[in-house]
Design a protein around this nucleic acid. Structure first.
Lengths: 134, 134
DNA sequence: CCAAAATACTACTCTCAGTTGTTAGACTTT
DNA sequence: AAAGTCTAACAACTGAGAGTAGTATTTTGG
């Protein structure tokens, strides 16, 4: 019961970060099949394991026990941003990354040249600037 | 480690209610010796069991994870892992976001025009392409 | 459309959560 | 002061299920 809920949360957050079961498993040092069981809720999760998972996902362990949708699922130390786009969203509430954003991030991270990265950001700033000044 | 801390918390709260190990064990339906192990931290506690214990003690399960006052709202995963990010970067591995990446994401999310977003990604793909084919 | 990555499902192994039994201290009560 | 009661600590044993590995199926993206 509770393991089922926790499992879903794990999956949610993992996907939010664009991680595969394999990647998450490697961070923790267990098999990805075991991650599957956690996510499906077929085996009980120990507190220790959940602690490791929390660390690997960059969220506080209590994130798995907070009921309701209005609770931030992903640690927002990073993503505390107000302006929400495609939905109603409370300030400070974080959404996991969508596919497009994950692609963006992976590419950005593979861009070693600092100048190039800064250029991309500059460019986006320009675009947003234009867009807002209607 | 974490089991030890949780165990102490259980003992603390149990005594706070003036309950014996036996009484607590009965409420949960296990042997009091097992409670001992939990309190000593000699066996790993499953989330399910901790949930039962929380219920039996009349506290929310998160009570066991809240550290003193200095509770970090956020796991320090990012702090521990982010610094090394610039040097080591495995392909496809996603980590919590650093400052630069947060900026990127915020801007990206404020870019309403789908075509523009796709353009940015295309552009990055080109850059990465060039960079890798040394 | 095809290869490769990601996820799902199955069968096996071996750890360790949980049980039982014993002991010891800390109190009452007679 | 001995005999009963209550609590907690520790040891030895057992089997459920946590964890692994192998294979099949789905999904991705090129």
């Amino acid at each position: 019961m509770i393991d089922k809920k926790i499992g879903l949360r794990i999956k949610e957050i993992r996907k939010g970060w664009g991680l595969s079961q394999i990647e998450l498993a490697e961070r923790i040092g267990i098999s990805f099949q075991q991650i599957q069981k956690y996510e499906k809720g077929t085996t009980r999760i120990s507190v220790m394991r959940l602690q490791q998972i929390s660390d690997a996902l960059g969220v506080h362990i209590t994130a798995f026990f907070e009921e309701g949708e209005k609770t931030p699922m992903v640690s927002d130390f990073a993503l505390r941003y107000a302006p929400s786009r495609d939905s109603v969203n409370l300030p400070g509430v974080v959404q996991p990354l969508n596919k497009e954003e994950i692609t963006l991030l992976k590419l950005f991270r593979n861009t070693r040249n600092k100048k190039v990265r800064e250029g991309i950001i500059k460019q986006l700033q320009g675009v947003v600037e234009l867009g807002n000044r209607k």
